[in-house]
Amino acid sequence: MKKLFFTILTVLSSSFIIAQASGNVNYQNQGYYNNNTININFPANDDIVVSVKGLANIKADAYTAIFSVTQTGKTTKEVNDLIDQRITQSLNEIKLKKGVETFVDMISFVPVYEYETEKKLFNRKTYNEMPAGFELKKNIHIKYSNPNQLNEFISILSNNEIYDLVKVDYFSNTLETIKKEMMLKAKLLIQEKIKNYQELLGETFTNAEKRIADDYIVNIPVEMYRSYEAYNGSSLNLKKAANINPLNKSVTLYYQPVFNKEFDFVINPVVLEPVIQIQYEVKIAISREKKQVLKADKTEKEFILVTANGDLKILNTNTARPIH
């Protein structure tokens, strides 16, 4: 099986390995990342909501590739000697590369069991679990800055029967600088939008109550790979029951970045290779000033009654009192 996997691995071209530097972790059953676009919501009301979204595509300046190594053996000494030999021979050659750092991570060291058949006369076969040896797992972490070096690492490691590329992490030293740049761009755009709204409505929001919210999302390439099976299925009209033995279909991976169609501005819009993507959104909710309707003061009217005796009385809807 290892020989077969190595044959498949060596067929891969350099450009394919760089472009698909996500690792075999993506071959697991995975859910699609539908909610990878930033969206800040205010409670629903009658406020005016002004929003600006930004996207930045950042090329990584450092990478960390993780390779998994598994070794089995009859004794603990045999297992340790064999795995150390494979790892040491690989790292001695990898460390000669420029700008490369390595680290070996201990994962697990467990006994391995197998079943031994015991057959007795007039009884069914009995399968007894027996110790068979030990299994040791370690991970090799390789930090590098030139993405083309990944092919060289794979070639070196495969010579020592290390094939399992778990994943590749991407890093950038400019994330904070890009975030500040995005915040400044969003500030200018949202001020322009507010000004346009004021002109359209013919009013000012200077004294209006305002609420603000903003947030960032960072998407790394390992999250953004999709898979599909490329094949054309066939249909059979079988009259009788039959056994159907389907073949395993090849699973293909591809890098799917966040599209820039929903954003007000994009920094570095053209994406050629997997990149780190930063999304920024800021929202301002403006409570419009309600115009107060002034009601005219009601003037109380008085009615004066002259009695037969010549006395004057003031009449109103409630009471009447005489004027002396």
Rank of each mutant, 00 (worst) to 15 (best):
F109L: 05
E135P: 00
M1F: 11
T7I: 15
D264L: 07
K98D: 11
K193N: 07
E101V: 10
L188Y: 15
K295N: 13
T126S: 10
L55D: 11
P257H: 02
S15H: 09
V275S: 13
D297I: 06
E223H: 07
M1K: 09
V282G: 04
T204K: 04
I178N: 06
G54R: 06
I178A: 03
I38D: 02
D84P: 05
I94R: 00
V79H: 07
V266Y: 01
F42N: 02
A285E: 09
V218Y: 02
G310F: 01
D81Q: 06
K239E: 12
L55E: 13
H141N: 01
A320D: 04
N316G: 12
I304R: 10
V293T: 15
F122N: 08
G73L: 06
I178G: 05
Q198D: 02
G73D: 01
T102C: 03
T307D: 14
N173W: 01
I304P: 07
M106C: 00
G233D: 13
Y32N: 06
I17A: 08
A62F: 04
S155M: 13
A60R: 03
A44F: 13
L238A: 03
S90C: 07
F16Y: 10
M182R: 05
P257C: 08
V218F: 02
S22K: 02
K261F: 04
T10N: 14
M182F: 02
V168K: 00
N243P: 08
F6D: 08
Q89F: 10
G133A: 12
S287K: 15
K2F: 00
N39R: 14
D84T: 04
I178H: 02
V306L: 11
I323L: 10
P131R: 00
K240V: 14
E135D: 06
Y254V: 09
I140Y: 01
L165S: 01
E192F: 14
Q198G: 03
